[in-house]
């Protein structure tokens, strides 16, 4: 049962990631692209690792994966924030109204 749930979660994560890749090619502007890639990366990664954790059950390996998830949740938005902030501070133009 837990194996099936884990596989389903990992499949859902793959769907999220595919949507994210489509979004990166769909939008033309830098700020929109970085927004899409950040959001989808975070959500897809969390779903993927949740799938791995459900699949392996309760053991030491799950704890390690949990630490990785916490680290990722802290760092990925931070990296996106600093990239977007440095782009804004170096006066990269904001997008027009129509995308």
């Amino acid at each position: 049962m837990s194996e099936l749930v884990g596989n389903v979660l990992m499949g859902v994560a793959l769907v999220f990631m595919t949507c994210g890749v489509y979004g990166i090619f769909r939008f033309r502007h830098f700020y929109l692209r970085i927004l899409i890639s950040s959001k989808v990366d975070t959500v897809g990664f969390i779903t993927l690792t949740a799938g791995i954790m459900v699949k392996s059950g309760l053991n030491f390996f799950t704890l390690k994966v949990l630490i990785i998830v916490v680290f990722f949740v802290l760092t990925n938005p931070l990296a996106t924030h600093s990239i977007a902030r440095s782009a804004y501070k170096s006066q990269y133009p904001l997008p027009e109204d129509d995308v």
Partner: peptide, 9 residues
């Protein structure tokens, strides 16, 4: 933000 969060890292 970077200064605060990096302290957590």
């Amino acid at each position: 933000i970077v200064a605060r969060i990096s302290g957590l890292l």
